[in-house]
Design a binder for these strands. Sequence first.
RNA 1: GCCGCUGUGGCGGAAUUGGCAGACGCACUUGACUCAAAAUCAAGCGCCUUUGCGGGCGUGCCGGUUCGACUCCGGCCAGCGGCACCA
Length: 828
Amino acid sequence: MMEEKYAPHAIEKKWQQYWEEHDTFKREIDTAKPKSYVLEMFPYPSGNLHMGHVRNYSIGDVVARFRTMRGFNVLHPMGFDSFGMPAENAAIEHGIPPKKWTLENIENMTRQLKQLGLSYDWNREAITCKPDYYKWTEWFFELFYKRGLAVKKNSSVNWCDHCNTVLANEQVEDGKCWRCKHEVHKKQLSQWFFKITDYADELLKDLEKIPGWPERVKVMQENWIGRSEGLEFSFDVPALNEKLPVYTTRPDTIQGVTFVVVPPEHPIVEKMLQGNPREAELREFCDKVRNTSDIERTSSTSEKLGMYTGFDCVHPLTGHKVQIWITNYVLFDYGTGAVMGVPTHDSRDWQFATKYNIPKILVIQPKDKELKLEDMTDAYEEDGIMVNSGKFDGMTNIEAMSAVSDEIERIGAGKRRVNYRLRDWLISRQRYWGAPIPIIYCPNCGEVLVPEEDLPVLLPEDVKFDAGAKSPLATSESFLHCKCPKCGADATRETDTMDTFLCSSWYFLRYTDPKNDKAPFAKEANAYWGPVDQYIGGIEHAILHLLYSRFFLKVLRDAGMVDYDEPFTNLLTQGMVIKDGAKMSKSLGNVVSPEEILEKYGADTARLFILFAAPPERELDWSDSGVEGSFRFINRVWRIIWHYKDVVAQKVTSYDAAGLDEADKELRRALNASIKKVTEDVEQRFNFNTAISSLMELVNAMYAYKDGKQEYNAGLVYETVKDLLLLLAPFVPHVTEELWHGVIDENTSVHDQSWPAYDEAALKVDNVEIVLQINGKVRGRLVVPSEASREELEKVALADERIKSLIGDGTVRKIIAVPGRLVNIVVK
RNA sequence: GCCGCUGUGGCGGAAUUGGCAGACGCACUUGACUCAAAAUCAAGCGCCUUUGCGGGCGUGCCGGUUCGACUCCGGCCAGCGGCACCA
């Protein structure tokens, strides 16, 4: 039944069809089995899979298939993150409707995914741009709205001129749009936000609850959230009868304050400008600062500029007058948007004060030397002892931090406060291809939610895509106009859509109950499957998707929909696929398309190479001859099994372990060592590369056995062939299925079998080669019984002729014997 | 500037608890098979030195701990990635 030669294409097509017909990967809740939820980040349907996808999904597939064979009920779904700009650009540039473009791409990519032989339960597919999915995205918006977590507010937001839309903070990289790489600038607009900052503290704290995440991802999230503890207090501005609040993490330096700085955006600026004798000059300066690009303005290397406003405020502790300056180096949207200036203990303030000749007061002295103001060239930012600080003098600055905070709180000038770098998540987009925001604006009732029974608000198709800076949805008359659900008056719809990252913040929950039309998912279904046990994807989502999803889940938990705190228990971030030292890209011309590899070698070779070439977290260097090597290995497996097929056909399924000869024992040892290695590498470490190399060693042992034997032990050969196929099955699912049917059992699937167990006793060898060292240098080798004791080892080592002559008349000071490994003789 | 990761043969990588550095594969060399080539099978393959046996050196660099260090400690260097005027 099996062919003599390995023909990947026919085999792969055949078994893909077989799995589909037999629903091999369909999964239902089964409380009798432990569950495991294995998930790979779903793709954006750009049209074609790239090698990064192949790597991501090959890793996930091995884990899913392995865990299935280990007895888990494995949930392994796939879908498409299918809203977003590229579909809309296709419409603008080529006149293709976004829906058509997207669905065709999904079709093509689904075909490619199926060609890879991935063990997905396609019955659970989730496609975010389909109404049966985005209905629930809209529903979640309403849930957040009702919980006070979705709010429309006017603020300074990131705007991309190229994409004609606003962007979330997380979507601005290096001052540029994450998607089109054009420069982003700030705009004052009224937009919808999700209040992720309400969860800032928990998002930070709960990183402790996910030890299964890579440290670096957690560090990135920690930095992004940017928690800091400090003091917020106010300076009185008598001339305006106002208070000017500032935030500091260094309350200990408060007596060193010699100025206060505000950015042009600060509301107090306008009050100081009106009627100011230098109004024109100051306004010109403010405009100049406002017009510098954000990247330039927020770069720490930019020159610090400022102008004195002519206004002073009063220091809350000393009562001294302090000048108020307008500058370019304060961020309006962090803290209170105003900062106290301490030139002696903050490097930025030092630069500023030096440039404008503002006085400096030293308030901290280092413990080991004495600083003199006139000798200093920069601020002293380290710890020390308080000076020039009245009653705080003599304290360490650490003590002064709390003493000053206490004092400020006592006199009622301010309070301790925690601040975050994290900003609220801007979720509205002035784009067409996204889930509509289910809000209606009524002249009488204001903002009104679309009633739940009217969801989904469907995307209209009669729109103009090149509407410029307003949402294309505003160009559809049929969409725009509606009746107020509360009072029936003529009303209009919100024309912005939601950020696609919102759609992808809950898709892993939908997979647990994908066909539900009463709710986004049933609590019971999710209680069985959730949370995701193993999540696999690219590091580029370290902040964006992985932070939003964590936030989403916490809100759903508070709403009683789920009973756990974190969506992804374990996370594996796979490295990039590179070639010739660089990321594969069209412009470099080093792209290898999965389709050409599949055509030339088939899916099994592509999968095997990608898993063998590097450990999953590291970069993978694509090598054409390496692929060739993987193909060769599969052929080698094929030939050795072809060679043994008649022995296997005898179906001798047992043998007497006590009656084995040396060659038999060696093969049996290789088999059991390989089972152990592959099991541990896949289960505990995801070291697929070393798992595969041990399988290569096993195959090499099968070749050695072939040449070293007159008569095969049929039982041992049967066991070896069978177990080899089982061990290989998660990596190369098609060829193992073919061989399984061909030589082991034509009536069952290799993928329905249990993972093989190893026999510890079979790993033992009778004799081992140990190393003889003198002063740590290898000076000889000796074969000894493997259970030889320390004393015996010492004895045989000292009896060795070569060792004896090398010791000569030196004195043996010490002998270290490690059974099974070495004897080290220390000679003087 | 701050934080993180990575440095091992010609190349990808292995060494899981401090115990033979270089598993496995790629490339290369040789042999068998062949009229020949490819494929396959078998053997060799860190560097220097030696006819050979052997000897010396070797995991980015410098030092330390140890009988013994790719592995632990201290100090550097290089490359990559993230954050970056967050007060």
